[in-house]
Amino acid sequence: MHTQDTSPRRSLSLNPAALDRAPGPSMVGQVRGLLSGQAATTLVVVDPAWIRYLTGFDGSHGTLLIDLRDEDRHLLCTDGRYVEAAGRALGARGLDGLVEVLGDDPLTTSHHRDLLRAPLALLGSCWSLSTLRLLMEIDPTPIDAQPLLWPLRAVKQTWELERIRAAARLADDAMDAALASLADGPISERLLAATYEFELRARGADEPAFATIVAAGSHASEPHARPSERLIRPGDILLVDFGATVDGYRSDATRTMLPSEGADPRVQAYWDIVAAAQRAGIAAATVGASAHDIETAARAVLREAGVEELLLHGVGHALGLEIHERPFTAHDRDPLAEGTVITVEPGLYVPGELGIRLEDTILVGAEGPECLTRPATESRTRPGSAARVRS
């Protein structure tokens, strides 16, 4: 069943203070509980997304040490640029009495070095060679905590969904405002992207969820085209791939809009095929199905139409604090849990000629899939056209 949010759409200006507060101590407790069966004495976290998830701190430099033996002894280590901000983030999460802020690096100083003792558990997807060497000197065979802890982030809690929903609405409103500027005459892809990002920040978003993609005409044949000085002409296909970030959480959507008059019949047929593939993929996004089932359902439609070879990427991915998170539809076969947020984004690309992609952010809900973004199939034609379709 494909359900979608039917509450009224309106211009949204975000008040961050209105967002529910993220839990703090309970999340640290969950980490310790999930690792309780492991031999590790300390969890070392360097991944910025994990540090933000657990503490609220979003600085560019930090290491989080969680003592797995002492529930009241944990360190957030950063440098002088972020000590004040780190303390403020911990206070907002109710962690200021539980996690101490240290203004230097425990890996290279003697401060609290006793926390770094074997056996260690490591959490992070990107480690510098120097950091790895230091940690391997302490413990040559550390425990990889990522597969043990990922279920915490894979299933979004109510407070996380609130942020993703807000990001989706802000992005839709900002893109509507940006596309309205096309009524004044041709503008460049780059200017449309810049207008969108201005409108996004004016409405209260932290930043775009990723580098905004605007591609007109044959430029849309590049799945990750970079906006150029190319003018967007009335007869062009227009592909926009856009998202917003609210308190660290991201949304992701792609609309491909056809000219209101004179669209090539082949282009229209391809758009309809992609729309059908997306509907099939969304319908497969149910509790207990796998992410790969979404891929299989969407590809089956493309295969039946004889165009599967024109799909150049996976059909979807989860998102949250990062724009690309597990599960990925291309290969993840574990059952989807209620609360998973995943994109469904089939596309067809003919090099040098055209590209069509339709993408929405989908919540795997207890009553079926819920579209958190405004459905891409509602935007078949460019703004101002009377021809609108609804899924």
Score class of each variant (00 low, 15 high):
D47T: 09
P48R: 08
A49C: 07
W50Y: 13
W50K: 04
W50M: 09
I51Y: 03
R52S: 13
Y53F: 15
Y53P: 08
L54F: 12
T55H: 06
T55F: 00
G56I: 09
G56N: 07
G56Q: 08
G56K: 06
F57T: 03
D58H: 12
G59N: 02
G59M: 09
S60Y: 08
S60P: 12
S60R: 14
G62T: 05
T63E: 10
T63L: 14
T63W: 04
T63S: 04
L65T: 12
I66H: 03
I66R: 03
I66F: 11
D67Q: 05
D67P: 12
D70R: 14
D70M: 06
E71D: 14
E71M: 06
D72Y: 04
R73I: 06
R73Y: 14
H74V: 05
H74G: 08
L75S: 06
T78C: 11
D79G: 11
D79L: 10
G80R: 13
G80D: 15
R81Q: 14
Y82L: 11
Y82G: 01
E84L: 13
E84S: 13
A85N: 04
A85C: 02
A85L: 10
A86S: 01
A86R: 03
G87L: 00
R88T: 12
A89L: 09
L90Q: 00
L90G: 00
L90S: 01
G91F: 02
A92L: 15
G94A: 07
G94E: 02
G94V: 03
D96F: 04
D96G: 07
D96M: 05
D96R: 09
D96P: 05
G97V: 09
G97N: 12
G97L: 07
G97Y: 04
L98C: 08
L98H: 06
V99E: 03
E100W: 03
V101K: 00
V101F: 01
L102P: 01
L102A: 13
G103M: 03
G103N: 14
G103D: 15
G103H: 09
G103I: 08
G103C: 14
D104Q: 13
D104A: 13
D105H: 06
D105W: 08
D105F: 09
L107I: 10
L107D: 07
L107N: 03
T108C: 09
T108P: 07
S110Y: 11
S110N: 11
H112G: 14
H112Y: 14
R113P: 10
R113A: 15
R113W: 02
D114Q: 12
D114N: 07
L115F: 15
L115S: 10
R117C: 06
R117Y: 00
R117N: 10
A118H: 02
A118L: 02
A118T: 02
P119R: 05
P119F: 04
P119Q: 03
